[in-house]
Deep mutational scan, measured.
Amino acid sequence: GLMCLEHEDEKVNMYCVTDDQLICALCKLVGRHRDHQVAALSE
């Protein structure tokens, strides 16, 4: 899978609806997407 741009060791596994961007779990937990609307990726 694709790796996160901000956290190079994390794979992107969710999608930020607010930013129209693929993000990883760390982005959602501690990153700038924590208050955004996110959706899980169905692979």
Rank of each mutant, 00 (worst) to 15 (best):
I23M: 10
H7P: 01
H33P: 02
C27E: 01
A40L: 06
V30Y: 09
I23C: 08
K28Y: 06
K11S: 08
C24R: 00
C16T: 03
G1S: 06
Q37R: 08
E43M: 04
K28P: 10
M14V: 03
V12E: 07
L41Q: 13
Y15T: 04
M14H: 07
K28N: 09
L22R: 15
A39N: 15
S42Q: 09
K11F: 07
G31W: 00
I23A: 10
K11G: 06
S42W: 03
E8W: 03
I23V: 13
R32N: 15
D20N: 11
H7D: 01
R32P: 09
V17I: 14
A39L: 05
V30A: 13
G1V: 05
T18Q: 08
D19R: 01
L5V: 06
D20W: 01
Q21T: 08
A40P: 14
C27Y: 02
M14P: 03
A39P: 02
A25E: 10
L22N: 15
H36G: 02
C4S: 04
C24W: 00
L26M: 11
E10W: 05
L26T: 14
C27L: 00
G31K: 08
E43P: 08
E10N: 12
A40W: 03
D35G: 08
E6Y: 04
G31P: 09
A39M: 08
G31R: 04
L41N: 09
L22F: 15
Y15R: 14
R32G: 11
H7N: 01
C24V: 00
A39V: 11
L2V: 14
Q21V: 11
Q21Y: 06
A40F: 12
V12C: 05
D19Q: 02
A40H: 07
C4G: 01
T18K: 10
L5R: 09
V38H: 12
L2Q: 12
D20E: 06
E43H: 06
H36M: 00
C16N: 06
E10M: 09
D19I: 11
I23E: 05
L26H: 15
E6F: 11
M3Y: 05
A39R: 13
M14D: 12
C24T: 01
L5T: 09
L41W: 10
M3L: 09
L5K: 13
H7R: 01
D9G: 11
H7V: 00
D9K: 03
A40I: 00
V38E: 05
N13C: 07
D20S: 09
V17Y: 08
